[in-house]
Simulated scan of single mutants.
Amino acid sequence: MRMYLVDSFTDHAFAGNPAGVVLLDAPAEEAWMQSVAAELKHSETAFVVTTGEGAKPLRWFTPVAEVALCGHATLATAHVLGGDQVFSTKSGELRCTADGGWVRMDFPADRSEPIEIDPAAALPGVTVEHVAKGKFDLLVVAGNAAQVRELRPDLDAIRALDVRGLTVTAPGDRDGIDFVSRFFAPAKGVDEDPVTGSAHCTLAPYWAGRLGRDELVGEQASPRGGVVRVHLNGDRVTLSGQAVTVFSGELHA
Rank of each mutant, 00 (worst) to 15 (best):
A55K: 05
R59S: 13
F107A: 08
P223Q: 14
K90M: 09
Q147K: 06
S112Y: 10
L151W: 05
D118W: 11
A253L: 15
V148Q: 00
D235I: 08
G54L: 11
R2C: 10
N17A: 12
R213S: 14
L75Y: 08
S35Y: 07
L75S: 00
V131T: 05
P153M: 10
D99Y: 02
P114C: 12
R159N: 00
L23G: 14
V230R: 00
S8N: 01
H200A: 04
A13I: 11
W32D: 14
P57A: 03
H12I: 03
N144D: 15
D106R: 04
L138C: 03
R59N: 09
E113T: 15
T167I: 15
Q34I: 14
L251M: 15
S43H: 06
L203R: 04
A132R: 08
E192T: 01
A19Q: 00
V217Q: 15
E192C: 01
T202Q: 15
D99F: 01
H12E: 12
E30Q: 00
A187T: 11
F9L: 11
A26K: 09
V195P: 01
G234S: 13
A145D: 05
D235E: 15
K135L: 10
S88I: 10
P63N: 10
Q242W: 05
E93V: 14
V140C: 06
E116H: 01
N233S: 04
A13E: 08
G52R: 01
G189V: 06
